[in-house]
């Protein structure tokens, strides 16, 4: 089986992102309103039994499209700050003057960044001050 260097995956990702950004810019030809929105929050991770938790901060740009109140294009940059997760592991010794094993404190710091393009579809309350929306992100 042919082996690809690690840079090849990044190159493939960059090609996909370039296409997605081009599509999003094309869709932005009819922009009527731009919002800048800082935000903050908290998250838990379901892929590690809820052990990893993070504090969020980020900023998003919302591009409201002309002729509709239902749709907005979103570009979002987010930084997730790690909250330490502590657990225990075993360390071993071959020195007869020491016990065979002892506890080792293990600390995991899960952090992440994300850059995403998304779409907001307003579902309820479009003509009121209280709007419920569904958002779909990718990238």
């Amino acid at each position: 089986m042919q082996q690809f260097p690690p840079e090849y995956a990044l190159y493939q990702n960059m090609k996909i992102i370039t296409v997605l950004i081009a599509v999003n810019l094309f869709a932005g030809c009819c922009i009527a309103q731009i919002y800048i929105a800082p935000f903050a929050g908290y998250q838990v991770d379901f892929n590690n039994k809820g052990n990893f938790k993070q504090a969020n901060s980020g900023v998003q740009f919302n591009f409201k499209v002309k002729r509709t109140n239902r749709y907005e294009l979103i570009l979002e940059l987010q930084k997730n700050w790690p909250i330490a997760f502590h657990s225990n592991d075993s360390s071993f010794s071959s020195n007869p003057a020491q016990p065979i094993y002892a506890n080792a404190k293990k600390t995991i710091l899960p952090s992440s960044y994300s850059l995403a393009a998304g779409h907001r579809f307003s579902i309820f309350g479009i003509h009121t001050s209280n709007i419920f929306s569904f958002l779909l992100y990718g990238e």
């Binding site: 929105a37 800082p38 903050a40 929050g41 998250q43 838990v44 991770d45 379901f46 892929n47 899960p110």
Partner: peptide, 10 residues
């Protein structure tokens, strides 16, 4: 990680 996040902003 596959996070479930709660965010608020302005």
């Amino acid at each position: 990680m596959a996070p479930l996040s709660f965010n608020a902003g302005y």
